[in-house]
Design a protein around this nucleic acid. Structure first.
Lengths: 337, 337
DNA sequence: CTTGGCACTCGGGAACACAGAGTGCCAGAG
DNA sequence: CTCTGGCACTCTGTGTTCCCGAGTGCCAAG
């Protein structure tokens, strides 16, 4: 069906189109890449490629442009992920190393990705469901009010103010805190509901109402925040890319947490790249945009995902290299802190 | 200089231009507003207004468009802030009331403002410098590692991991925590540096190295975070507004925390509105955009600022009404939590 | 299978004309 | 002195036409 030369032609078309943003014709191809054949031959190959839906022409007398299917083939079989330069790697490292807490790690990662790829960067906070408890703190604020602070092993901190049904002395709070921590230390967040079930039984009866209130807030926190937190940046790069049409749709999609999460896609292997090209992606407002995403995590556990979004016409090898590298570094930083 | 009719003409020009987005001519004005005079008279007035720099014409044979100076006069003397409808007020209230923590309050406020005004919303987190300490927590994580958590009266929580120079027992940490809280409870954050100066003296000598480390991190946190946290949303509204040119600049400005903070401007009275029109604002990339901002706070203390950014050609009375209302409600919510 | 030749198509830019909105100015009326 | 109607003038934006050139598809020959 597709012999080697046709594939070479497709690759050349994608590369040229990405770099020039103009439909590429047979003559230009023959000139710029030395394929060793004449424009006429290339035309025949192009006709075949078009026949099979890998490329298309915007209008009769124009050059060819890759279709989503064409990009897909390019990404799957015709390109190699381009590793970052040494300077870039070092830049990543130093830039991320300066972060002092999780918020800052995530914020810097967004900036980094956006700058590196000149695209819109999207980073998901380390998932609560896949984290575990590092510490639970109960801080008395007033006689009948405490603050519940949950610290996870990924450095994420959730806090919630709780109004208690009755006053409770500080030492009893200390006891409650001790019991809770004894139960939950290192416990995966998804196991928390089962694990705390027997906490009230270990407490003196008079503390149980307060404990019940606190526990219910704790569980609520886990449920509500199940909807993951996600952050993006680099939208200025959108304006530079030329898809003036649809820009509004893209911005809207970005502000919808839910859409954004679905965009990052499902997990495959850790730091395995997911590429969604144009119409492949689940949201109609994003025709014309592609997503390159990867999971990141510490050790071998994937904690969340990150990626970039840009025009279908993007430099996939470079972008994929950048996303993969950043995902790895973020994982390392997270493991180290 | 400017008699009443000329002012009425200016007002009419602003209103028409805002609603139609097209240069407005003398005939259209005479038709739509019953000023009681003929187009010719209006033309004379317009000539005077142009002479003095309140309006301008894009090209010779077009209608007039307000200048920044014209909008300024309009805002200062010709318009009344438009209060929100009852339905809108209720919507705000219920929407904000559902928030469980500070992050969520801020996030919802951004959405609310963006939706209400159909503009880009910008919200600053309650300032650290103007908050006070509600509680300091020191959580042991490992033998030589603790997490320092600082909770402010505005619900803001800062946390930082600290590596200690030497191991320290839990009960000694508890003591340190007690001393710290005793000193700092209710202390304004700006007073913290002086207040903690004598903490080491109250501790047994063997705890002082650890305490010194922890204190220095605490102070660092205050300094670093002096650069305030700020959040924006509703950028999709930018694409709808028609200033395709310069959109890139606007997006870039929005991603610069520093610029953003300066944009919100300085404090005047609480929930006093600040309006910056086009060239009045300090950042050159934002020619063509105006900012409407207000301070918000609980009680009578201004904690931070919020506002919206949109094209100079915006509906000031409505926008100002919305910003003012949201600022007030946020203040209330914050005071109540 | 490849290649050069050739006729054909179509988008986009240049040149041009034209209608319409809007202006400035002036002279006359109140 | 102020307002008004009339009038000539000046633009921009739009539609039309025309033509160039890039690029194609097809064909016949190597």
């Amino acid at each position: 069906m597709l012999d080697d030369r046709k594939l070479a032609v497709l690759r050349a078309i994608v590369e040229d189109y990405v770099s020039t943003n103009e439909p590429v014709g047979s003559k230009a191809l023959a000139d710029r890449h030395n394929l060793g054949v004449s424009p006429a031959t290339i035309r025949n190959d192009m006709a075949a490629l078009e026949e099979q839906g890998y490329i298309t022409q915007p209008h009769t007398s124009a050059g060819r442009v890759p279709t989503d299917k064409g990009y897909r083939l390019f990404v799957d079989r015709l390109s190699q992920i381009k590793p970052l330069s040494g300077a870039e790697r070092r830049a990543i490292e130093t830039f991320l190393a300066g972060a002092v807490d999780l918020d800052e790690i995530v914020m810097r990662t967004v900036r980094l990705l956006a700058q590196l790829t000149r695209q819109v960067a999207v980073v998901q906070y380390p998932s609560l469901t896949r984290s575990s408890v590092r510490h639970v703190e109960i801080v008395p604020l007033a006689e009948r009010r405490v603050m519940l602070v949950l610290i996870t092993n990924t450095g994420r901190v959730e806090q919630r103010v709780v109004d208690l049904p009755e006053a409770i002395a500080d030492d009893r709070i200390a006891n409650l805190r001790a019991v809770l921590n004894a139960c939950l230390d290192g416990c995966g967040l998804s196991q928390v509901p089962e694990t705390v079930a027997d906490v009230p039984d270990r407490l003196p009866p008079e503390d149980r109402p307060a404990a019940a209130t606190i526990l219910s807030v704790l569980l609520e926190t886990l449920v509500e925040r199940h909807e993951e937190k996600i952050v993006f940046g680099g939208t200025a790069n959108l304006a530079a890319a030329d898809f003036s049409i649809g820009l509004r749709d893209v911005l809207e999609a970005l502000e919808e947490q839910v859409v954004l999460i679905r965009l990052l896609g499902e997990t495959r292997g850790l730091s395995e790249l997911t590429v969604r090209i144009g119409s492949e992606n689940p949201y109609s407002g994003l025709r014309g945009t592609s997503i390159v995403a990867a999971g990141y995590g510490s050790g071998d556990k994937e904690l969340a995902r990150l990626g970039v979004l840009g025009p279908t016409r993007m430099d996939y090898p470079v972008t994929m290299g950048a996303v993969r590298a950043v995902a790895r570094y973020v994982g390392q930083i997270l493991a180290g802190s």
